[in-house]
Computed example of a mutant assay.
Amino acid sequence: MNMVLFFISLLFSSSIIFNFGIAEYSLPSTKSRLIGKNKQYVVPNDRPPLEEIARKFKIGLLGMLEANPGIDPYLPKAGIKLIIPSQMLLPATKRNGIIINLAELRLYFFPKGSNKVIVYPIGIGQLGTNNTPIMITNVSQLIKNPTWTPTSNIRKRYAEDGIILPQVLPAGPDNPMGLYALRLSYDQGQYLIHGTNTNFGIGLRITAGCIRLRPDDMEKLFYSIPIGTRVQIINEPIKYSKEQDGSYYIEVHQPLSTRESDDPQIMPLIYSKEFKKFLQQAEIDKELVDKTIARRSGMPVKINKIKLNPKNNNRKNIIKKVTIYN
């Protein structure tokens, strides 16, 4: 998006809040990571933009595009069936406080003393010097009605497009920080989890390094978080799990690009030692793994080998019937 148009949309778009509840899931046992279930949605005749549909189901825009490749994000065809990617694998880390996986543009919140997880789509830092860093930190401050003080780098970048930013933008409905913010103690405290004054940009790399939530999501999170809450930010485009019933799953997202010329759909993925070991299991179908890695749907895919019917052992025909939408 042109920087001028982007800035105007930040400052002057109204905060239309669509409150359709929250994406809340019961926590599985510690030996399981699979939560939720994918849904289908038929685009109505008025053809709402994909962002509006994503907002309704608490999904990020990129997540919808990963699950539905080739869809027109502005005017999806009426009657077409969309996949709502609301099934996922929990990140393989401590289920405590807030976990943010940059690669999937999701925030996981584990309320203390509960047996649930709440999942929020997020916007993250742009490519280049505005990347959101990996960290383990905590919430140091709860800020209601935050002001916005653009950094020197932000001011310089906007000045190159002829936009002179104010030294401080006061709190209120025109503030791109929204009405609520959580300051992280990492580094000099310049990174925040905050809302926005526009519903555009959730599920995209669009911020100056902070974590952005939709306004209604941020309000709910703000009133659920005590100071000192642990926050862990990771960057893992591949998640995987062996479930208690013997099912093997992998969930593959497009990796974050590091250069303007990168194509996240074909960028090579780095396999960790743990993932390589996971793939050595005899029950896993290596061909299906390769298809899933190439597809990068952002949804969990069961990758167990198919048990062949003795009357039809044509493996290629069976593989063709496997859907990676689960």
Rank of each mutant, 00 (worst) to 15 (best):
residue 107 L to G: 02
residue 40 Q to M: 14
residue 65 L to E: 13
residue 200 F to C: 00
residue 237 P to V: 13
residue 88 M to E: 15
residue 121 P to N: 08
residue 302 K to V: 01
residue 280 Q to L: 08
residue 194 H to K: 09
residue 204 L to K: 13
residue 274 E to G: 04
residue 82 L to R: 01
residue 188 Q to S: 14
residue 278 F to R: 09
residue 70 G to P: 11
residue 169 L to G: 01
residue 31 K to H: 11
residue 248 Y to H: 10
residue 122 I to G: 09
residue 95 R to T: 11
residue 274 E to K: 12
residue 100 I to W: 09
residue 173 P to W: 09
residue 185 S to H: 01
residue 121 P to V: 03
residue 198 T to V: 08
residue 317 N to W: 15
residue 31 K to R: 15
residue 312 N to D: 15
residue 285 D to N: 12
residue 168 V to E: 14
residue 100 I to H: 11
residue 131 N to K: 14
residue 118 I to E: 00
residue 285 D to G: 07
residue 241 S to M: 07
residue 106 R to L: 10
residue 155 R to C: 02
residue 77 K to C: 02
residue 137 T to S: 04
residue 230 R to L: 12
residue 234 I to D: 07
residue 61 L to W: 05
residue 74 Y to V: 07
residue 263 D to K: 07
residue 233 I to C: 06
residue 306 I to R: 13
residue 25 Y to I: 03
residue 236 E to L: 03
residue 160 E to K: 15
residue 164 I to H: 13
residue 262 D to V: 00
residue 112 K to C: 04
residue 107 L to M: 08
residue 325 Y to N: 14
residue 307 K to D: 08
residue 324 I to Y: 06
residue 92 A to S: 10
residue 105 L to C: 09
residue 215 P to E: 04
residue 244 Q to Y: 12
residue 126 Q to F: 06
residue 133 P to V: 04
residue 319 I to H: 15
residue 198 T to G: 00
residue 174 D to R: 13
residue 168 V to G: 13
residue 116 K to A: 06
residue 58 K to Y: 08
residue 108 Y to N: 06
residue 16 I to F: 11
residue 222 F to Y: 09
residue 105 L to D: 11
residue 256 L to E: 12
residue 114 S to T: 14
residue 225 I to S: 02
residue 88 M to Y: 12
residue 319 I to Y: 11
residue 129 T to K: 15
residue 140 S to E: 10
residue 326 N to D: 09
residue 297 S to T: 15
residue 192 L to F: 10
residue 254 Q to K: 10
residue 78 A to K: 05
residue 311 K to M: 15
residue 211 I to H: 14
residue 131 N to G: 13
residue 49 P to Y: 04
residue 320 K to V: 08
residue 27 L to F: 00
residue 268 P to K: 01
residue 153 N to I: 15
residue 6 F to I: 01
residue 289 V to I: 11
residue 266 I to Q: 03
residue 276 K to A: 11
